[in-house]
Design a protein around this nucleic acid. Structure first.
Lengths: 198, 198, 198, 198
DNA sequence: AATGAATGAGACTTCATTCAT
DNA sequence: AATGAATGAAGTCTCATTCAT
């Protein structure tokens, strides 16, 4: 038996995409391997030529999507000059991306969180590339004197990411009924200036 | 068969507490009813005299702990006069409570999130009583002129809760190795003033 | 602990009657001891002061009702002179009795048959007192020269009882929608003369 | 997971046959899926590739056996010319079949009746193909002038089926100790001519 | 490389019966 | 005599993974 590993044949992407669709449609706990296989138009056994196990599908799914996403956000950030605009670009792109991929929003905000501790640790690992973008902006802000030099980068990052994440999750839980992108501006303000009247 | 319902005998609390312990130790998906029963020193069947089903145990667990918690936070808030101090009391009490109940921190930040959509909706419902405390502080801040009158309460709440939640989750994922309570002060500052220097 | 056995206090009949009602309403497999106890307005444990176990309730139920029933049929038979009229009296009374106690009809024709081999053997035993009435009529018919002297009593009894039983069961399965008593006359004819014309 | 449905591979029949054996040996309520699987020499899960659930096994079992049986009886009937001989062929074949398949006799006369209302309704439905054979003979007898033209087909069918069924059940309850086939002739006479001395 | 039939471990819940009060 | 809370055994079905073809 040959092990393909990451010799990504066309089937590799078929399976990844099928997994994303099945999870978004049926939910994490209803995304059986056989359902993913059927959607990908391959046999159940074929999946195991490309992935070690079910968890590996999910990790790979998250990794592939996230790397595309991070590249996109990075580009948007780099197109901006000032730290404030960079932060806005990130917030805006984050909301815009999830608004345009509502299935994916459900997967990331609700479904993938139903995984167990081990799987979530691996998801966290992948998420770091996104958090790194945040850290870069914060560090740059400190260098440029826009943020306080003793601003705790980790705490700032947690505030930014926590705020974005909670905002998106609330939006998903409310069935994505309102315009998420419209919140980019006020959220950006809030993050920059906090609660206090300036 | 007797139906005790919510006639909370001593067994009721034994079972709730056992569930919290078992989930914290073994994880959500490894918290079998029989394991909870054993820990509570009752027979498996006894559980069903007090709870409709397994989900009911978890909901009740969350409701009981959360109502105690909300009462405690509320008291701490009421002991303060100004809005800024009230917000600090909330942040501090939140971190303090989870620091002192590390099992419970694991349960809320990691394990309970592995439940399915239906269960999570019920958890959200219970969580509302805590979010209401946030809303009250925000509204009071607007009335007192400390916060801008057009501050969006929902967004502000999402920033505060998102920041706290992300901070606690990060702490739990890092195996609770550092002092969470010490973060109350800088997080409070960050929430009030945002990222920008002064 | 005292054993009451057949010291039939008032509770004994309460329980028997409750069992009949519960089985008729909810079906055999849904007739839990606790449901019977509740209907009889006694505690679960009380049942075991009057009956050895659940099976004993059912046996006793069948025995009590059947002995009343057999006495009634016997009286009707004795009121008739000729064998043909006696047979008619039996058929008529059988159908009439079940028509007037539709709950009981469901219990005997459907629910009690869902019991296991052992219980059914005991039910058969009780049923013998009814079958004896049939045997008596057949023997009397043979003596009086109305039936052939070499008529096999057992087979004749099986034909009569089988026909009556199947007729009642069909009626119950058809939701007792038609008049069962009206069938007494033609069934009686069929049993006497068989299928052949004249 | 593959869905085989009614793609009756060899396993399908293995399971059906195993079910019949296990039910006859251990009784309906002791015929656990795992016991059937073991007897069929397949894994528990394999059963669910061929049957929707446990009830489906039993329904299928009854349907398969009954359709074979009805075909056999039909053939025997068609080999006869007159209505009287056809009726005899049916009675004789019925008794002969059950005599030769004592396991099956236990299943049909005792075990399958312990099923609940829903399952019994489905069994009744399948039984109709056998009752149709009876109806055909009765109708033919009326057309040929051997039976009275106003003979109620339903009642006649109930007499015939009720008599056969009661006879077989009695034989099974008496542990199949006597010769059932020998009763075909006198039962046939009884059905044709009734109780009265001709 | 691909298939898909087969595997088998694992868990929630019910309910007849008991026994301390 | 009566209560009713407590017990604990027992069974159906799902689904990730394997392996012969």
């Amino acid at each position: 038996m040959a092990k393909l590993g990451k010799n990504k044949g066309p089937k590799y992407n078929q399976i990844i995409d099928a997994a994303a669709e099945v999870i978004a449609e049926h939910g994490f706990h209803q995304a059986q391997v056989s359902k993913i296989a059927k959607r990908a138009k391959v046999a159940d056994g074929t999946i195991y030529l490309y992935f070690k196990n079910k968890e590996d599908i999910l990790i790979s799914l998250f990794r592939e999507k996230m790397s595309l996403y991070v590249a996109k956000v990075e580009e948007a950030i780099n197109a901006q000059q000032g730290v404030e605009d960079k932060l806005f670009a990130l917030v805006d792109m984050h909301f815009r991306n999830l608004s345009e991929n509502q299935h994916w929003a459900i997967v990331t905000q609700l479904e993938l969180r139903q995984s167990d501790k081990q799987l979530r640790a691996k998801i966290s690992e992948i998420l770091k590339s996104f958090l790194k973008l945040l850290d870069n902006i914060i560090e740059e802000g400190k260098k440029e004197g826009i943020f306080a030099p003793d601003l705790d980068t980790r705490l700032a990052r947690q505030m930014i990411f926590g705020t974005l994440d909670e905002t998106v999750t609330t939006w998903v839980m409310k069935d994505q009924k309102y315009d998420l992108v419209a919140l980019a501006r006020p959220i950006h303000q809030l993050l920059l200036h906090g609660l206090k009247k300036n």
